[in-house]
Nucleic acid binder design. Structure first.
Length: 537
RNA sequence: GGUCCAUUCGUCUAUCGGCUAGGACAAGAGAUUUUCAUUCUCUAAAGAGGGGUUCGACUCCCCUAUGGACUACCA
């Protein structure tokens, strides 16, 4: 019988959720959904010294924003604008700091079965030892020279514990054994137990277990079927296998899959927070204000990325299907994803491609939706408090966005593309003038003004479909029928006249098709801009 | 230093022994356009090196090199 797929994402609340962590969460989620399994979220806060307030909320909010849904454990409460955390499921509590008693019980079990022992060596003593002996390791070769329950009489150990002496619990690793770890991505990994040290399982410093112990106990108790985590855990996977065995849980031990790392875009090494600052891209999903050290980190959401784009981008960083498809919805990813198609080597983080993904999602959005998103930015630029106070019409905003969205990667970039629709030019781009404003241009504009004056309000906006010489259907504007014959008759150059006209309306040689501009501006505004330009240039 | 993992265009990757090595991002060129863009077309760009196995190797094996991770009372 196949056992139910239960995977977990288990971040530490030590700061903002790193983008690599987001990808780990995503792969877990895709795997869970594909197998109709359960996606569980557990908080691994066994390091009390590194806890950062707000990190837990941040993680849940980020996953919520990205559409990575949590079935069990801690998650963001739905339908609440202020983030509320709720715990669902019967395997709780889902914060390791709230599971102390559980760990005590299992540490006891290991101690009683002889798989672990008590050690009194202080951090200072260990540090001295490491300084003294190169490559010192607390293991089978050295443990008998240390201060622990293996080397001290039982009553002495008892006495020290009673006296309140600080101690840790260490895992007893038997030497000379090849430990096999089966990895779904890498296959069989074999490590000699000789290179493993007697890891601390329970810390004296904050009366909490270390990651290794808590992780195994929780994964077992929460019936995790697959552990999908970053490659940085691969070296300690043999230890985890040994731990499952020591508990007698080898039959229900989860499958392992160690994901390749996300690397720096340039140079070498793991992607870090600093790389983002240095190269100008976010490494976190959401902006984060770290209350502990006062730093602010930029986020994908605040930078204008769509969650779908971030998901799509991240999914393809380390995984790819057989075909050439680049754009995937979450549902498609759930259908197509498989762990055996995850690459084995680390992926350099190419944020240029991330922008491209955002562009792809942006141009597919309806103009009305983009207008809605752009409105606050527009009002801010126009220094308007409330939309009702202005003459701005939402359908007009949607229209100009439709004309320009192909040119941008982010909604906030739209302003630069559409600003002249809202604000008449007061100065004129020098380069454009030099190239496009000729001695005859004022004369041309004056004549054109006359022609345009005569066009009725109705005809101003009129256009119709027409076949061009290649048989393609093209849009022809009524204004073409007025202006083109005039240019031809006077033997002016079309480019000369139209570019001068464009400069009057836009202030530079850029923007969408000219009749789209006049259509949006309307007759009155168009004529005013031409007249203004004639007095200024 | 030790252990483990990895290695196809600049980057992300396809190829599950038959390759004229495909796609995408980025780059470059051209075409279209009354502007700027868009769009379209094209170009350049790769199997780390050396040994095997095989009729045949990017694909399998070994060695070397390079890169990465880990090596805490951090996760």
């Amino acid at each position: 019988m196949e056992r139910q797929v239960r995977v977990r994402f288990a971040p530490s609340p030590t700061g903002a959720l790193h983008i690599g962590g987001v990808r780990t969460a995503l792969y877990n989620y895709l795997f869970a959904r594909q197998h109709n399994g359960v996606m569980l979220l557990r908080i691994e806060d066994t390091d009390s010294t590194r806890f950062v307030p707000g990190a837990e909320e941040y993680i849940l909010e980020a996953l919520d924003w990205l559409g990575i849904e949590i079935d069990e454990g801690l998650r963001a409460k739905k339908g609440d604008s202020n983030l509320q955390i709720e715990a669902v499921g019967s395997h709780g509590p889902y914060r390791q700091s709230e599971r102390r008693e559980i760990y005590h019980e299992y540490v006891r079990q290991l101690l009683d079965s002889g798989h672990a022992y008590v050690a009194f060596d202080t951090p200072e003593e260990l540090e001295a030892k490491r300084a003294e002996i190169p490559n010192f390791q607390y293991d089978a070769r050295t443990r008998m020279q240390m201060r622990n329950s293996l080397t001290m009489p039982k009553d002495e150990v008892e006495r020290l514990i009673q006296a309140g002496e600080k101690y840790v619990v260490r895992f007893l690793v038997e030497p000379d054994e090849d430990v096999h770890v089966h990895d779904l991505i890498r296959g069989e990994v074999v490590i000699s137990s000789n290179i493993l040290d007697d890891k601390v399982l329970y810390k004296s410093a904050d009366d909490l277990p270390t990651y290794h112990l808590a992780n195994i106990v929780d994964d077992h108790l929460m019936q995790i079927s697959h552990v999908i985590r970053g490659e940085e855990w691969l070296p300690s996977a043999p230890l985890h296998v040994l731990l499952y065995r020591a508990f007698g849980w080898q039959d229900t031990m989860p499958e392992f899959a160690h994901l390749p790392l996300l690397l720096k875009p340039d140079g070498n090494g793991k992607l870090s927070k600093r790389d983002g600052d240095r190269l100008g891209f976010p490494v976190f999903p959401l902006e984060f204000h770290n209350q502990k050290d006062g730093t602010v980190s930029s986020g994908y959401r605040e930078s204008g990325y769509y969650p779908e784009a971030v998901i799509n981008f991240l999914a393809l960083l380390g995984w790819h299907s057989t075909g050439d498809q680049e754009l995937y919805s979450m549902d498609e990813l759930i259908r197509e994803f498989s762990l055996d198609r995850v690459s084995k080597s680390g992926a350099k983080f190419d944020f240029e491609k991330g922008k491209w993904f955002n562009h792809q999602y942006l141009i597919r959005k309806p103009d009305e939706e983009l207008a809605e998103q752009f409105m606050p930015i527009l009002l801010e630029h126009l220094k308007i408090q409330k939309l009702e106070d202005s003459k701005i019409d939402k359908s007009m905003v949607a229209k100009v966005i439709g004309l320009t969205k192909e040119r941008v990667n982010f909604v906030q970039e739209l302003w630069e593309q559409v600003c002249f629709f809202f604000v008449a030019p007061t100065e004129y781009d020098e380069k454009s003038l030099k190239k496009r404003w000729k001695d005859d241009s004022p004369q041309h504009m004056r004549e054109m003004l006359g022609l345009l004056e005569a066009v009725s309000e109705e005809n101003w906006h009129k256009s119709y479909e027409k076949q061009d010489e290649n048989g393609n259907t093209v849009i022809r504007w009524h204004l073409d029928d007025i202006i083109m014959p005039w240019i031809a008759g006077k033997e002016y150059g079309v480019g000369v006249v139209m570019n001068a006209f464009r400069i009057c309306l836009v202030g530079a040689a850029r923007g969408p098709h000219i009749w789209n501009i006049t259509d949006v501006l309307g007759k009155e505004e168009t004529l005013r801009r031409v007249k203004d330009a004639l007095t200024r240039i």
